[in-house]
Design a protein around this nucleic acid. Structure first.
Length: 892
DNA sequence: TATTTCACG
DNA sequence: ACGTACGTGAAATAT
């Protein structure tokens, strides 16, 4: 016996959208309507076990109903973009279910469903209609039931003719008469004014149809009669509008909607992309090509774990080494606890092969019997497939072990696949790529003070699961890198760079303790003096470092005008204080105090804490998977924000010295790399010309924007032009520029307009890149690095504007990051090839710092800027300025 | 743990 | 009209 299920796709998706809180997947796609629709669909399939299923959609905006009544469905809120973006994905998902979908231009989903229920009635087939709209009730018959969503998507009211009769005392087909009289505000169907459900039902119980009511008006009286009389046409038209058209020329065979169940592969893949983890679990689906999750779990359950500990047998190690020789793929996981890899605690290592996982706790790694494995780890020619091998390499190195031959790193790849994703733990990455069964570190170890390595077996199992997950994720990672066109970026740039970084980090840079301490003493005595001065001027002692107390003193006790507020109270940042300077002589003191205490706490005391006693060096940790644009970040300590702008702070750089006597610090920085990148990608002729002739770009901009010859550009004009250039790189807004220059928004807007009229190609780039981001959902850099910008389609002005500025900025900042990364890899190769002793130590976004022996200084002064400017061929020259000295301060 | 401030490109 | 410049990390105080 056949059973048809006919679903009104638009109506159910709409209901789901409003019933569920906003959900998004990691690429920012909203998924709540899809999720709600899917859960309901699964429930219905299970309950009704239909032989045929169809999802009908409305097609286009105008239907035949608009021909007679153009206001039909007028006044409706526009479909929110967060919902409309879900429809194409929903339709794809329905295909993955193997379920048919119809839409027909000029007709609504109702009409398609109405036509099919008519066929069901005629053929004597049972049918169930699913919708969020009670209008469907007119379709109920002996064979057709209608399920209407109530409260969200979890519950449905099922209507049969009996239930309808009981509830309304009417036949189902009279539903349209009811609508004719009472109207429907949601579809903008007028009905008769003053007639609601109560009155309409009373009239229909007596006269049974709209036509009959109209024929018997003489039996009515008063206001009701007047109203109906005056709205005869409205009533008839409303009935017509509410009538589902059941003669749609479908021209489709009913066999087209036969449902044979879903294919686990296809549905698993679709769910994986949507990140419907719970649904995958529920259906026991897995993303890795066909293997169901129950299989995966079974596999995990009988995961053969072999623990090789210090007195462990040589047979185990031999078996592992033989398996590594024989196998193409494996998963390698190194457990190093702690955020700072230079002082992480190495807990152990695991290697997963297809049918066995080996675990070596830390103490085993140094044992004699593990020497073969150490050889494999260090062997540059043996590929390694791991997870965060950059950190692993450092942690191992501090334990006296080497890691070479990194070939594919699941974490690094996961970052490239979505550089805004902050959750890059193996557990999180595993889930995003459709894997299951890796508990979070927090679940296994606990966190903070409660951190504790579990008893042996649980710990070994955790390491085993991780290595196994790495191995199982490899195919998905390879596929995704291929699909997104990032193979070259990954294999030729990021993966080799990880190695270069590890080298720089473990080399470290020498910092002279005495130099810092000397500076610290001087700062301390200045701070003491200023502090006393501030207390005297305030008339009381307070904590100057407390924005709260400072706010109270300034704005309450001293009665200064408060300019802006933060979430918690008065703002006292430098911008506010500078405005207050004319009002009170305490202000400059506070600003100076702030500046010096920042130097003292962050740069003197902070840096001193990071110096290794044994070597006098600091070892930063460059993080390759943090910045959304592709830049590096630096931690423990951050060596990318050492003061330079103000002379007092710049002194800090005197403490950064070569680690060998007689050597020099050599630094080179790209000149205007971001604007040069902009000239290249926008193709703006004027901007390109400027760089081809190596002009002073801010002076050139001022000359063009203010329309004066370059030699008549004064310092003020140049300063303004410089701010405009910054603004252009950041994704300009008149407000931002006005803030920066302290001018009105109008004036800022005029500057921008002037700029764009001279640099027309830049304007076109800005327009095009935003349009492209809206269209594709992401932007790319010169080396095809991606950044997704889901919010660029948001209806929220703020979110959208932010995304638009990001769309303009990321290709610029990101391409500049690509270029210096290229230069780093190439410099590393050049040093090796030429067997130079010089060492790369630091990267500061557009600058590279080396320590160089005297006999290589002349060579390096040539080589470094040559490699940097030749790193990538652009339509404009890249320029790098080089300098050197006895310390970082002198290299300016 | 969150907020504020400020150092860098 | 909306209210912002892009990208980071560290320290101190507030909660």
């Amino acid at each position: 016996m056949d059973k048809w299920m006919l679903i009104d796709g638009n109506s159910v998706a709409y209901r789901a959208f409003f019933a569920l809180p906003p959900l998004t997947n990691s690429s920012g796609l909203h998924t709540n309507a899809i999720y709600g629709f899917t859960t309901m669909l699964l429930k219905l399939l299970e309950e009704h076990k239909p032989t045929h299923v169809l999802v009908a959609f409305d097609a286009g905006k105008v239907t035949f109903r608009h021909e007679g009544y153009s206001e039909y469905k007028g006044g409706r809120q526009k479909t929110p973009p967060e919902l409309s973006e879900q429809f194409p994905v929903l339709k794809e998902l329905i295909s993955s279910f193997g379920i048919a979908q119809f839409e027909l231009s000029g007709y609504e989903a109702d009409d398609i469903i109405g036509t099919l229920t008519k066929q069901a009635d005629e053929k004597g087939v049972e049918a169930v209609v699913v919708s969020g709209d009670k209008d469907m009730l007119q379709l109920t018959s002996e064979r057709v039931t209608v399920a209407v969503t109530k409260k969200g998507v979890s519950e449905l009211d099922v209507y049969t003719p009996e239930i309808f009769r009981e509830k309304y005392g009417l036949e189902p087909r009279q539903h349209i008469d009811l609508k004719g009289l009472m109207g429907d505000t949601s579809d903008n169907i007028p009905g008769v004014p003053g007639v609601g459900e109560k009155t309409a039902l009373k009239l229909l119980h007596e006269f049974s149809s709209v036509e009959n009511v109209l024929d018997n008006l003489d039996k009515l009286k008063g206001k009701l009669k007047e109203n109906i009389e005056a709205n005869r046409d409205n009533a008839l038209m409303s009935k017509k509008l509410a009538t589902i058209f059941r003669e749609v020329p479908l021209e489709r065979e009913t066999e087209e909607i036969r449902y044979n169940g879903y294919e686990a592969d296809k549905l698993g893949e679709a769910f994986r992309k949507l990140e419907f983890k719970s649904l995958m679990d529920k259906l026991e689906l897995s993303a890795d090509s066909g293997a169901s999750e129950s299989e995966a779990r079974a596999a995990a359950a009988d995961l053969k774990v072999t623990v090789l500990d210090a007195d462990g047998d040589h047979h185990g190690i031999d078996r592992l080494l033989r398996a590594l020789d024989a196998s193409d793929d494996h998963g390698l996981y190194i457990e190093a606890i702690g955020e700072n890899p230079h002082q992480a605690e190495l807990l152990g290592l695991s290697v997963a092969l297809e049918d066995e996982v080996f675990v070596l706790p830390q103490q085993a790694l140094t044992g004699d019997f593990a020497s073969g494995l150490r050889g494999w780890l260090a062997d540059e020619t043996r590929p390694k497939y791991g997870f965060d091998m950059h950190k692993s390499e450092l942690a191992l190195r501090w334990a006296g072990l080497a890691l070479g031959g990194a070939a594919l790193d699941v974490q690094l790849a996961a970052y490239l696949l979505n550089p805004t994703e902050t959750q890059l733990s193996l557990s999180a990455v595993n889930e995003r790529l459709g894997g299951t069964g890796v508990p979070s570190d927090e679940a296994v170890y606990g966190k903070g003070a409660k951190f504790k390595v579990p008893e042996k077996d649980a710990f070994y199992r955790h390491l085993a699961l991780k290595a196994d997950a790495v191995r199982r994720l490899l195919p998905a990672v390879r596929e995704e890198l291929e699909r997104t066109g990032m193979n070259k970026l990954y294999f030729d740039l990021e993966q080799p760079l990880a190695r270069v970084l590890a080298g720089m980090e473990s080399q470290g840079i020498k910092v002279e303790r005495e130099e810092l301490e000397k500076l610290g003493d001087s700062l301390q005595s200045q701070l003491t003096t200023i502090m006393a001065d501030i207390y005297a001027k305030a008339g009381t002692e307070f904590n100057i470092g407390s924005p709260k107390q400072l706010g109270e003193i300034l704005f309450e006790k001293l009665g200064l005008p408060a300019k802006k507020k933060t979430k918690t109270g008065y703002s006292t940042d430098a911008e506010v204080l500078e405005e207050l300077a004319p009002y009170h002589e305490i202000i400059p003191l506070i600003l100076h105090y702030r500046q010096l205490s920042k130097l003292q706490s962050t740069y003197v005391e902070g840096l001193l804490k990071e110096i290794r006693e044994e070597t006098g060096k600091v070892h930063t940790y460059y993080r390759q998977t943090i910045a959304a644009t592709g830049r590096l970040s630096s931690q423990f300590p951050n060596l990318q924000n050492i003061p330079i702008r103000l002379e007092e702070g710049r002194q800090i750089r005197k403490a950064f010295v070569p680690s060998e006597p007689g050597w020099s610090i050599l630094a080179a920085d790209y000149s205007q790399i971001e604007l040069r990148v902009l000239a290249h990608i926008s193709g703006d002729e004027n901007l390109k010309e400027a760089f081809i002739h190596d002009m002073d770009i801010h002076t050139k901009t001022a000359s063009d924007v203010f329309g004066v010859p370059a030699d008549q550009v004064d310092s003020n004009m140049r300063r303004s032009a410089k701010a405009v250039n910054f603004g252009i790189v950041y994704g300009i807004s008149d407000f931002g520029l006005s803030q920066n220059l302290g001018i009105t928004r109008k004036e800022a807007a005029q500057f921008i307009e002037q700029y764009f009229s001279v640099f027309k190609g830049v304007r076109k780039y800005m327009d095009d890149i935003v349009a492209q981001a809206k269209n594709d959902g992401y932007v790319t850099t010169l080396l095809d690095r991606r950044r997704y910008l889901p919010e660029i389609r948001s209806s929220n002005f703020n979110l959208r504007s932010f995304a638009e500025r990001t769309a303009m900025n990321t290709p610029i900042q990101g391409s500049a990051a690509d270029i210096i990364k290229l230069a780093m890899v190439q410099m590393d190769e050049a040093l090796r090839e030429r067997k130079l002793k010089s060492r790369m130590l630091l990267q500061v976004h557009d600058e590279l710092v080396f320590e160089v022996p005297p006999d290589e200084l002349e060579l390096m002064k040539q080589l470094l800027p040559d490699v940097m400017s030749g790193a990538l061929k652009l339509d404009v020259p890249l320029k790098a300025d080089v300098s050197f000295g006895d310390n970082w301060y002198e290299a300016k």
